[in-house]
Amino acid sequence: MAASEEIHEDFDYDNDDDSTTAKIKIICLGDSAVGKSKLVERFLMDDYKPQQLSTYALTLFRYNTTMNGKSIGVDIWDTAGQERFASLHPSYYHQAHACILTFDVTRKITYKNLSRWYKELREYRPSIPCVVVANKIDVDFSITKKSFNFVKKHNLPFYFVSASDGTNVVKVFRNAIKLAVVYKEESTDFLDEVMRELEV
Rank of each mutant, 00 (worst) to 15 (best):
M1I: 05
A2P: 14
A3H: 03
I7M: 07
H8W: 00
H8S: 02
E9Y: 01
E9N: 06
Y13S: 06
N15K: 14
N15Y: 13
N15T: 14
D16S: 15
D17M: 11
D18Y: 13
D18M: 13
I24Y: 04
I27G: 00
I27N: 10
K36S: 10
R42G: 12
F43T: 03
P50F: 12
P50H: 13
A57C: 12
T59C: 12
R62H: 06
Y63D: 00
M67G: 11
S71A: 14
I72D: 11
G73A: 12
V74Q: 05
D75W: 02
W77G: 03
Q82A: 03
R84V: 14
A86D: 15
H89M: 09
H89V: 03
Y92Q: 04
Q95R: 02
A98Y: 09
I100V: 02
I100N: 07
T102P: 06
D104A: 13
K108G: 08
I109L: 12
K112Q: 11
S115A: 08
R116Q: 09
Y118T: 04
K119N: 05
E120V: 06
R122S: 08
R122D: 05
R125E: 01
R125C: 10
P126K: 07
P126V: 01
V132F: 02
V132G: 00
A134H: 11
K136H: 08
K136C: 05
V139P: 04
F141G: 09
S147T: 08
F148Y: 04
N149Y: 04
V151P: 02
V151Q: 00
N155Q: 05
L156I: 02
P157L: 09
P157A: 05
V161L: 10
S162D: 14
V172R: 03
F173R: 03
N175T: 11
I177M: 08
K178E: 12
A180D: 03
V181F: 04
V181E: 01
E185S: 01
D189G: 03
D192A: 05
E193S: 07
E199M: 15
E199T: 15
